[in-house]
Every structure is written in C-alpha cells, then in structure tokens.
C-alpha cells in the first residue's frame, strides 16, 4: 500500500500527483490507496477543483478524478480517452481489452474463460465498451466474435495510462483466485 504520503508533502500535492499519475482513478480507490480521511479528501478535491487542477465527474456509477492540466509536457487527455479511462480503472474492462489486443477477435465464451469474468458481468462490460466504440460484437450464435475497433489506439492507451499498482491485498486475492483444480 502507498502508506502515509502526507509526511512527504501536503495532502493536496499528494492527491494531485496521484490523480496525474492515474487519471480517471475512482474516488473510493483514492481513499483506500492514500488513506485520506473522507473530510480531508472532500476539502482538497473541492479546493483543487476551484483552482482548475482536478475535475471530478460521475462516470458509470463511479466518481472519477481527472487532472485538468496536461501531465508533464504531454497533450491534455482527450475527452474520448477520459470516458474510456474511467472504465479502465476497473480490472475487468482492462483485462478484456488486453486479451482482445493480444489474442485478436474471440468468441464471448472464450473471452469470459480467458479473463475470468462471469457471463453477466462480461456482457455488461462489453456493452459499455461497445457504446464507447472501443470494440464491436459481430456475427450470431456460434459465429459471434468480439474484436477491437482500433487495436493500436487501445495499445497506446493501455501503455500511456498504467493500472494502479497492486497492493499486498490485491496480490493475496490474485494468488488465491487463480487457483484451479
């Protein structure tokens, strides 16, 4: 875990650099990772919002935080990337896109097996990714395939915006969840 960050700087600095490093990060995840008291977090998000440094927006049922200014010398985050980033902060959609990028078009069943997401959740994520025009579902019945619309763009996005680092709890969960007879 990224513990006690306030010792090395103010909460505002810590919060801003965290959001710049992980744009689209969910509010709940910020609280968990930085261990900021909710009142302090609300206060600094409000202040940073007023200063035009961070924007908080509701996306897919989650409050997501984005840096308002360009990160480093790079360009500002395009609007369509922001929509996708909010979704990619969930492990499921990221795994789906990575699988489709690495293995190419697959059937929904193969995709569910590969990423380990139950059918109903997979269908929900596919619908949302399809609405963002990131992937398409083609064909019917046994011929049904899921494919990325622009694999190169997805590759760039996955590389440019890294996932949140795994905590000890994440590693514990992954280790035990990946066991199969």
């Amino acid at each position: 875990m990224e513990g006690a960050p306030a010792r090395n700087g103010t909460w505002a600095e810590t919060l801003l650099s965290f959001v710049q490093r992980y744009p689209g990060v969910h509010l709940r995840e910020i609280r968990r990772r930085l261990a900021i008291p909710i009142g302090t977090l609300d206060y600094h998000l409000y202040r940073l919002g007023r200063q035009g440094l961070i924007a908080v927006r509701m996306q897919g049922g989650y409050k997501c935080c984005f840096p308002e200014l360009p990160i480093g010398s790079g360009p500002p985050i395009p609007e369509e990337d922001k929509l996708l980033l909010a979704l990619l902060r969930l492990p499921g959609p990221r795994a789906i896109l990575l699988e489709l990028y690495l293995d190419g078009p697959v059937s929904p069943r193969e995709l569910a097996d590969a990423v380990g997401i139950p059918g109903s959740n997979l269908s929900y994520f596919l619908k949302r990714l399809e609405a963002l025009r990131v992937l398409v579902r083609e064909g019917e019945g046994a011929e049904r395939r899921v494919r990325l619309v622009a694999p190169v763009r997805i590759h760039e996005i996955l590389l440019r915006y890294p996932p949140l680092p795994e905590t000890a709890l994440d590693r514990f969960l992954r280790f035990w969840s990946e066991l199969h007879p």
């Binding site: 000890a168 709890l169 514990f172 969960l173 035990w176 969840s177 066991l179």
Partner: peptide, 18 residues
C-alpha cells in the same frame, strides 16, 4: 486479517475457506 479483508472485497466461498 488479510484474508478477511479479501473476503470483504471479493466475497466468495474460496476466499472464505482461505
């Protein structure tokens, strides 16, 4: 404690057994 936190995050029979 870690396992209980994991169960709270991802409730599943497997994690409960762990």
């Amino acid at each position: 404690v870690i396992a209980v936190l994991a169960v709270r995050r991802v409730p599943s029979p497997r994690m409960a057994l762990v």
